[in-house]
Amino acid sequence: MQLAIRHRTRYRYDPAVAAVGVRLKLYPPTFAAQHPVAWTVAVNGVAVAPGFRDGWGDQVATHFVRGEVAAVEIEAAGVVDTRDEAGVVRGLREAVRPGMCLRATPRTEADSAIAALAREALEDGGTQLQQAHRLQDLVTARIAYRAGHTDGATTAPVALASGAGVCQDHAHVVIAAARSLGWPARYVAGYCLHAEDGGDDVATHAWAELWLDGIGWVGFDASNDLCPTDAYVRLCAGLDAFDAAPIRGHVEGAGAEALDVRVAIHPAGAEQ
């Protein structure tokens, strides 16, 4: 499939601030399941090229806007060729080793409830792949999709206990549970054509990748109870949502910040 994507993020500052630095991981990497045909990233209309590729295989750019900054608009747009690889990540140029993805972060520390959930996924036996699917099913069943119930700082234990959350919470719980079993797990930010978090407030999507012996990294999207298909575009990875944030900003000055995010994603040629 070919997906056309336009991802616009706008920060407004009132009063204007002296400078804003942004760190962008907004460049979809090429691997077996996806290949960007055309892709540009611009900040306030200025094209920004990546400076280096990090250990996760993601290209990173840093850009500064200086002098009476009232707004910063970041636009990532282009067309990505996708293929359904059943969530398996093949051919990604990355240096991070699976063992590094066993470390807990403040958002993905497992509590006893998450550890119990993880053990439950093993109960019916089967292969590790089947158990991973079972874990995904369990998280989908235990955490209802509900926007506005959690926020960016919500931890995996809190999300599970509250029983509701968004894609970030689903991914964090899958990751925390997998690591409690000794399975390397990581957080992936990206886009999804049929994301359940659709509607006007659609932002980026997120899911988990688990390292399965003999297979490698496989994506699990508990928000859709699905492994990523050709409807998914993978942006960047990290140990958790904070680590894998496609955009991080640093503001010099003390203006109140307002954020507006729009993601439009369509099969190419079907743009509205």
Binding site: R53, D54, G55, W56, E94, A95, V96, R97, M100, G238, L239, D243
Partner: peptide, 9 residues
């Protein structure tokens, strides 16, 4: 003290 940010550099 191990920083994933340094991997591959």
């Amino acid at each position: 003290a191990f920083l994933p940010e340094m991997v591959g550099f």
